[in-house]
């Protein structure tokens, strides 16, 4: 523990770290299906057999009727932009070398969606409802980053 000594020689603060560097986050059934699907270049959702709602990301319980969900379905990868923002600075306020367009992507008949980067699009071309599709990385390891970005459907 170190001491800051900044106010005319008076001690005013103690400094310490919140030393919690590592944590593992168990995927569970829902995210296992989702991430292993991405690894295979697929987008997997889950569908409640009681009320018919299809959820993305997939999960094993329905927030509407609380039924257990056992049906996982691959969805069509053609999505649309539901909303977007253009990031200009990082968390510490530094300008990004290149602005990043982030978009919320929705899919037909699916509740939820995927929040991800949008690339190959000029800001002024973007509109709500714009058709987009994912571009997967060559090398995939089961993470949200297996999708490199979304881009417009030509």
């Amino acid at each position: 523990m170190s001491v800051w000594d900044v106010f005319n020689g008076k001690t005013r603060f103690l400094e310490d770290n919140m030393n919690v560097d590592k944590f593992v986050y168990t995927l569970g059934h829902g995210y296992e299906k989702f991430f292993n699907g991405l690894k295979e270049g697929k987008i997997i959702a889950s569908k409640c057999s009681e009320c018919g709602v299809t959820y993305l990301p997939p999960r094993i319980y329905c927030e509407e009727c609380l039924s257990e969900i056992t049906e996982f379905v691959e969805i069509k990868q053609n999505g649309v932009v539901l909303g977007y923002t253009i990031q200009n600075v990082d968390k510490d306020g530094r300008h990004l070398k290149e602005k990043v367009i982030w978009a919320l992507i929705g899919f037909n008949g699916v509740r939820g969606g995927i929040f991800h980067k949008l690339v190959g699009v000029e800001p002024e071309e973007i509109y709500v409802g714009m058709p987009v599709k994912p571009v997967f990385r060559e090398e995939r390891k089961g993470s949200i980053n297996d999708i490199q970005y979304f881009t417009k459907t030509v």
Partner: peptide, 14 residues
């Protein structure tokens, strides 16, 4: 969300 957002975004203002 540590699964789907944290790996992508560092700035919550996004």
């Amino acid at each position: 969300d540590p699964y789907i957002h944290r790996p992508l975004v560092d700035n919550v203002h996004v």
